[in-house]
């Protein structure tokens, strides 16, 4: 399981971004997670709170958009979403389709932040 490493990389990337934004509270992290990213969603969610503890991200939600694998069918010339990772074939014409166009994403897309009121800053 390498999701704790992934979660720590995620927190590091997010904290860098937060430091540029000034005094904000991070409400949520938005991720895109491809089915071929090699990362298990549940394990990442489990690791996230642990990795976030004591950082500027602590308490934030993890909002994950799962990206199914899409391939370019060499016969149809169309992008096709794969119903299963066990068959890299066009679901329409059954032609083997090795070219992955989507599904490897492991990406922090956005931060959802709210401003911290000035009087609250001193309490932190």
């Amino acid at each position: 399981m390498h999701e704790l490493s992934i979660a720590m990389s995620l927190i590091e990337a997010a904290c860098e971004e937060v430091s540029r934004l000034g005094d904000v509270r991070v409400e949520a992290l938005h991720l895109r997670l491809g089915a071929l990213s090699g990362v298990v969603r549940e394990a990442l969610e489990f690791s996230f709170d642990l990795a976030a503890a004591g950082t500027a991200i602590e308490g934030a939600r993890l909002q994950i958009e799962e990206i199914p694998v899409a391939v370019l069918c060499p016969r149809c010339g169309e992008e096709r979403e794969l119903p299963s990772l066990q068959h890299f074939r066009c679901p329409v014409c059954d032609t083997p389709a090795p070219d992955v166009v989507r599904g490897r994403e492991l990406e922090l897309t956005a931060l959802e932040v709210s401003e911290i009121p000035e009087n609250a800053v001193q309490d932190r």
Partner: peptide, 17 residues
């Protein structure tokens, strides 16, 4: 309080990459 979305679009393994 109103929250806002800040776009980042960064690979999580960017450092490794």
């Amino acid at each position: 309080m109103q929250s806002r979305i800040v776009e980042v679009r960064q690979g999580i393994l960017k450092k490794n990459d």
